[in-house]
Amino acid sequence: MTRYLKFLLPALVVIAAIAFFALAPKSRDNLVVIITPSLDNPFFGWEARAAEARAKELGYKTLTFSHGDDAYKQNELIDTAIARNAAAIILDNAGADASVAAVQKARNAGIAVFLIDREINVRGAAHAQIVSNNYQGATLGAESFITAMGGKGAYVELVGKESDTNALIRSKGYHEVLDQYPDMKMVARQSANWSQSEGFTVMQSLLQAHPDIRGVIAGNDTMALGALAALEAAGRTDVVVVGFDGSNDARDAILRGRMTATVLQPAFRQAQYAVELADKHIKSGQTSQVEKLLMDCVLVDGNNARQLDNFGLKKG
């Protein structure tokens, strides 16, 4: 019996070691996956660049994708991140409700998920949700709009995707201010789905239906710039236009005197900060921050437009 134990015990040790390593959690690859709605849109493109650059500075490999606001494609990209054994995902998501399952799936797979720009409608799935203070920013834009309109006149509102919480929050912030002025008359409110081309076509239709409009307030700069192009094509250089995002194109339109203002949301810094929190979580297992983090917005008009560059304000 002793002779058999002599051979059996080493074998049991080997089997136990194999079982331990098979069941132990796999170490994460040194990879950060960055997923945004688009890489062509200036806003989403710059947040992707910011996240990628910061991740590389911190020593990570990166993969960058776009989901095109398609929740099904986003789900496939999350599966790719899981298959590649990513350490973290930086995500500007494809819908407040439609993205919940995908985010939870990544977390269940042991991947830290950090949302930027757009939040989801649950808490506890993402490790952090870093978003602009859209309500605060919208009130700044509305106040500038009212001043430029002289507190009266017919106007239209262009809103973003109804599935995007940001669209609803910005609209609510606008109306918190605008609705206090009885001589400000909203004659139409229509979605242009964050799109410049849709902003153009929607504005063409609205101009025909409401030729007396004196102002356009839009939920983002791309819609505002589409509306501006339609106004210019119709020879309407008398209409006040206010956007939201802080793009270079909006800056240039302000400097030309064709847009009144935009609201800068700090996309570049949000993306950097998301990577920094991801790095902290990867190294220590926690971020020491609450899940939802708000960054205040800044009004950009003729006074500071020259400082605006790629969704950030330069000093001086």
Rank of each mutant, 00 (worst) to 15 (best):
M1S: 08
M1Q: 10
T2I: 13
T2H: 11
K6G: 01
F7T: 09
L8D: 05
L9F: 15
P10H: 10
P10G: 10
L12A: 11
V13S: 12
A16G: 14
F20L: 11
F20A: 14
F21T: 13
A22N: 08
A22I: 08
A22W: 12
A22C: 12
L23D: 02
L23Q: 13
P25Q: 07
L31D: 01
T36K: 10
T36G: 13
T36M: 11
R49F: 10
A51M: 06
E52L: 00
E52F: 00
A55K: 01
L58A: 06
K61A: 15
T64G: 03
F65P: 07
E76F: 00
I78N: 00
A81I: 11
A83D: 12
N85W: 06
A86H: 03
N93V: 11
N93E: 13
N93F: 09
A94M: 07
S99Q: 06
V103A: 04
K105H: 11
A106I: 03
N108R: 12
I111L: 00
A112D: 14
L115M: 12
L115A: 12
L115N: 11
D117W: 03
R118A: 12
R118K: 14
R118D: 03
I120F: 15
N121D: 14
V122S: 13
G124N: 07
G124T: 06
A128T: 13
S132V: 04
G137P: 05
A138G: 12
A142I: 09
E143Y: 05
A148F: 05
M149K: 03
V156K: 02
L158T: 02
L158Y: 12
V159E: 13
D164F: 09
D164H: 07
T165A: 15
N166I: 06
A167D: 04
L168V: 10
L168M: 13
S171F: 05
Y174N: 01
E176I: 00
D183W: 02
D183H: 03
A192R: 04
A192G: 07
N193Y: 10
W194D: 08
Q196E: 15
S197D: 14
F200Q: 15
L206S: 04
L206G: 04
L206A: 09
L207P: 04
A209L: 12
P211F: 08
I213M: 13
I213W: 04
I213F: 04
R214A: 09
I217G: 00
A218W: 10
A224L: 00
L225W: 10
A227K: 01
A229G: 07
A229S: 15
A230R: 02
E232F: 01
G235T: 02
D238L: 07
V240K: 06
G243N: 05
G243W: 02
F244E: 02
D249H: 01
D252T: 11
A253Y: 00
L255F: 06
M259L: 09
A261K: 04
T262F: 05
V263M: 05
L264E: 07
Q265T: 02
P266D: 06
A267I: 01
F268R: 15
V275F: 08
E276C: 10
L277E: 10
A278W: 10
D279R: 05
D279I: 02
G285R: 08
T287E: 02
Q289G: 03
L294G: 01
L294D: 05
M295S: 07
M295T: 08
L299Y: 05
G302C: 03
N303A: 15
N303F: 02
D309M: 05
D309Y: 13
D309E: 14
D309I: 08
D309Q: 13
N310V: 12
N310C: 01
G312D: 13
L313V: 08
